[in-house]
Write a protein that binds this DNA or RNA. Structure first.
Lengths: 171, 171
DNA sequence: ATTTTTATGTCAACATGTTTACGTAATTAT
DNA sequence: ATAATTACGTAAACATGTTGACATAAAAAT
């Protein structure tokens, strides 16, 4: 193997190193600044993610805990605690699935939907504006594209996510 | 305000929503798959970040806990626990700073450096290859650029990080 | 009808992240 | 010299994330 190949390999490794370290830093800051942005409402970025998911048209009539965990890419056990905290705040509720009595459907309460639409949107759009300062629409689309692509790779690395995907594809 | 303006604004919000949700998902998967990749060595992604930071030329002779926390963008209290676990594993050590007796410098032990160089690199390069499948060198550079840019915005949103930056700039 | 699978709940142990707060010791500023 | 600041350790309380394990009840397969 030539010297240049070695150098190229070392450069590639340094590039990857930097990339994932930046991702790690961004993740830390996302949660730190995001939670602070919604401090007035006592909502964390994770709760934000749950509430946002529940406003999706597909989940509007309720979603099973397991499906929500698959969607958010967190564990069922972790999500259970998150949901119980949101339930205690009166923002979400559980209803038994008419089609499957084993399944409880999580959905927003009227209070939860109101909080999301009328109160949180002010801080959320402010946060978006701050965190995406200097990003053109094209930049945003490109970044989303890269994150999408990386996410697919991550899922391929995760045995559970892969089988869950296959299961979903087989339905 | 015209109807098109409203639509543009809604589209922008949907775009930002998707972007940060992807970032949230990528962060979850980074820790899940990254920790699993290094499972054989009992190293988590956070410990990985610490060890990686300590191999930087600037930190090779040791770095103060506070400076390391600033660099990793985590709190000092959190880092203390992380370091004590790495210390218990014999991977890092603390030494008193000759220039400032208040300050303890964290640095890799011989064991730690050996683990990083001889053992972890195999799994790390495998993880990089998997998570960046389909990414050209240009893609990686562009993604790093976007993450860098977003990180700067996050820091601007964080009162502490901003003051720390200013403090550093003033030195 | 009986067995197996599935969905959820729950408990436990652990690592990571936050914040607030207090003590101590060393340095720096006055 | 005295006072203020700085660096660290440490503790507590909390929210998030992981894994593993076990119980239960309903659905699905045999």
């Amino acid at each position: 193997m030539g010297k240049e190949d070695e150098e190229t390999r070392a450069m590639q490794a340094a590039l990857s190193n930097r990339l994932f370290f930046r991702l790690y830093q961004c993740a830390n800051m996302l949660h730190k600044t995001g939670t602070r942005a919604l401090d007035r409402h006592g909502i964390t970025t994770q709760q934000w993610a749950v509430l946002g998911a529940l406003t999706r048209p597909a989940f509007e009539r309720g979603v099973a805990v397991g499906d929500l965990a698959t969607f958010l890419l967190v564990s069922r056990q972790n999500l259970a605690g998150l949901i119980s905290r949101l339930e205690a705040q009166g923002l979400v509720e559980k209803a038994v699935d008419a089609a499957d009595n084993r399944s409880r459907l999580i959905r927003l309460t009227v209070t939860g939907r109101k909080l999301w639409q009328d109160d949180m949107q002010v801080e959320i759009s402010g946060f978006y504006a701050g965190a995406l300062q200097g990003f053109s629409t094209d930049d945003r689309i490109h970044l989303i594209h890269y994150l999408d692509k990386m996410l697919k790779n991550f899922k391929a690395l995760d045995p559970e996510a892969t089988s869950a995907e296959e299961k979903q594809a087989a339905e």
